[in-house]
Design a protein around this nucleic acid. Structure first.
Length: 546
RNA sequence: GGCCUACUGGUCAAGGGGUUAAGACGCCACCCUCUCAAGGUGGAAUCACGGGUUCAAAUCCCGUGUAGGCUACCA
């Protein structure tokens, strides 16, 4: 019995060899330096912010180098796979303008010449590679049950040994092929393990684009490469796929650095040139003093859909991600306000090595700045889209008279330093509700208001056609009649006067909006118009008397 | 237990032997012919700790500590 016969016994239906696939998937015809990379999620549910960060990074590097960015679905863990996972992933990313040049489009469809892009459809390819390894004596069937492996682990833990199937724990590593094939013929369960050529006492140097040179002990664990169900493990699938798909750069999150020795070893076993690796740090969260990785289960801000529900513009999220990925992005953007994110040249050298605490406040600020640069039309449309999905009641009010709403949104907008108060589209309602009569159901706090004076002003002095200067001068003039003076004078001699111009404005603001803080009073009054202003004063009076 | 990695203000960070230790967010104070939001000006850090090396260390070396990751027939 030869190893070839053992390999045939295990994989009786494999017709091709590795060479066949190498010819089927020739090198890509791209310009020098083009980066081919991928986003390779498991379809286990929603896209979370850390994954968005990784895919945004990959996408940016691929595109700025005129390379290729593709989507590969890693569904080798059948227990965790979720219905409609692929479409959700594509949709979530598309919201952020992250689109794929090739890869899976749905469970059935895909585009590109290097597919299939769904791992569960690539079984035959993986088997071809594993078959060759068995023929060459570089991999072997292992009959250790999961229970046996667990008990080995337990013993290792107790005696403080290194954990794993290596050395003498790799009981089936050198089993004669006759015995192994007999066990298989008897129907015993098995997995395929790599016969690791490494030694724990030798060092291997791995280079990482963001971390530099990393030194590890060689991998000497006979890692599983194929599971009982015939599907490959992540490590092995990664090797085959990224080799055949000609991936040049693997950009993935930090939790993978410790598998680097395994991955390098796998490439060496086949004599393939490994791709370049870049490990990016995870996003962290300060949870009441405990710093931990952002978790899908505990943190709502983790799901990408959270930003959608909050009405935070996707562009703002991207700006924030860009500032996290490259520390020099923020400064660049400050100086190049009119440029797009894609105009920035990302570099691996500027990727931070340590994990960043996710800062919602900073994101909000970026978002405010971003929205402040939009014009009234854009804000109107964006808010409308948001309300259509999340607040149908306010949508009716908001869209009833589009020009009026746009005028509200335009208050203090068309100026060098535009107003910066909308951080997310879900804020719009609580910022402008009082401008709509149907929403204006105020509950006034107790405050000293000279109703008679305001009535006199609104009826006899206020003219909605006045420009801002005239408006202000009139209030000052009117104030003098009632013993109110300028702010400066009042501050100098507070005892001589009843108050200052600002006090009149505050009273007006309060009666008109029921608020003490609002944007520019002149604009608000102008938009509301004299008639409604007087009505609001009447409303205030009746509420006071009640 | 083993193996990795990271530690500069509340947060993100620049700086890689000699700097008044950039900048952004947040915070505080003041200014800005009505309040807010902005904007402007200013304020707050001896670079986790302990030892070295050096005329000189946030920067180099060694320990310690803390945090994170891996150590699955999960990815």
């Amino acid at each position: 019995m030869t190893r070839k016969e053992l390999a045939d016994l295990i994989f009786p239906n494999i017709k091709h060899d590795i060479k066949y696939y190498e010819e089927k998937y020739p090198p890509r015809d791209l310009k020098e330096g083009a980066i081919v990379t991928r986003y390779a999620p498991s379809p286990t549910g929603f896209v979370h912010i850390g994954a968005l960060l990784a895919s945004f990074t990959s996408y940016s590097f691929a595109h700025q180098s005129e390379g290729v960015f593709f989507l590969r679905i890693e569904d080798t863990d059948t227990k965790r796979t979720v219905e409609n996972g692929i479409k959700n992933i594509i949709k979530d990313l598309k919201d952020f303008d992250i689109v794929f040049d090739e890869g899976a489009l749905s469970e059935e469809k895909e585009k590109g010449n290097y597919g299939p892009y769904i791992q569960s459809k690539r079984k035959e390819i993986y088997h071809t590679f594993i078959k060759q390894l068995i023929e060459e004596g570089k991999a072997y069937p292992c009959f250790l049950s999961e229970e046996e492996v667990a008990s080995i682990r337990l013993r290792q833990e107790k005696s403080k040994k290194r954990i794993g199937i290596y050395g003498r724990y790799a009981r089936y590593r050198d089993m004669p092929v006759e015995e192994a094939s007999q066990k298989i013929k008897n129907g015993e369960d098995y997995i395929i393990r790599l016969k690791s050529p490494g030694s724990f006492y030798k060092k291997i140097k791995c280079s990482d684009l963001v971390r530099g040179t990393l030194e590890f002990p060689e991998n000497d664990i006979d890692i599983p490469i194929m599971k009982k169900d015939g599907l490959p493990t992540y490590h092995f699938a990664h090797l085959v796929d990224d080799y055949l798909m000609h991936t040049t750069h693997i950009i993935r999150s930090d939790e993978w650095v410790s598998s680097l020795p395994i991955h390098i070893q796998l490439f060496q076993v086949f004599g393939f040139k490994p791709p370049k690796y870049a490990h990016i740090s995870p996003l962290l969260k300060n949870d009441n003093g405990v710093i931990r990785k952002l978790s899908k289960r505990k943190d709502p801000e983790c799901a990408v859909s959270f930003y959608h529900e909050m009405g935070i513009p996707t562009e703002a999220v991207k700006l924030y991600l860009a500032t996290i990925i490259n520390s020099n992005f923020e400064e660049w953007y400050l100086q190049n306000k009119d440029k797009k994110i894609s105009d920035f040249e990302f570099s691996f050298k500027k990727v931070s090595k340590s994990g960043a605490l996710f800062d919602l406040e900073k994101l909000t600020n970026i978002s405010k700045t971003y929205i402040s640069r939009l014009n009234k039309e854009e804000i109107y449309e964006q808010t409308k889209t948001y309300l259509e999905e999340f607040d149908k009641d306010f949508l009716k009010v908001f869209t009833k008279d589009p020009d009026y709403t746009k005028a509200i949104l335009n208050i203090e907008r068309e100026q060098k330093k535009p107003r910066k108060d909308i951080g997310k589209y879900s804020d719009v309602k609580k910022l402008i509700w009082y401008m709509y009569d149907e929403e204006f159901k105020p509950s006034y706090e107790n405050k000293d208001i000279d109703i008679e004076m305001l009535s006199d002003y609104l009826n006899n002095y206020y003219d909605e056609n006045d420009d801002k200067n005239t408006w202000f001068n009139k209030i000052a003039e009117f104030g003098q009649k009632h013993n109110y003076t300028s702010v400066k004078e009042y501050k100098e001699n507070p005892s001589l006067y009843k108050g200052h111009v600002g006090d009149i404005c505050e009273m007006l603001r309060f009666v008109i909006t029921s608020l003490t803080m609002t944007p520019d009073l002149y604009e608000i009054m102008h938009l509301l118009g004299k008639e409604r202003l007087i009505k609001r004063l009447e409303l205030y009076k009746t509420q006071k008397n009640a």
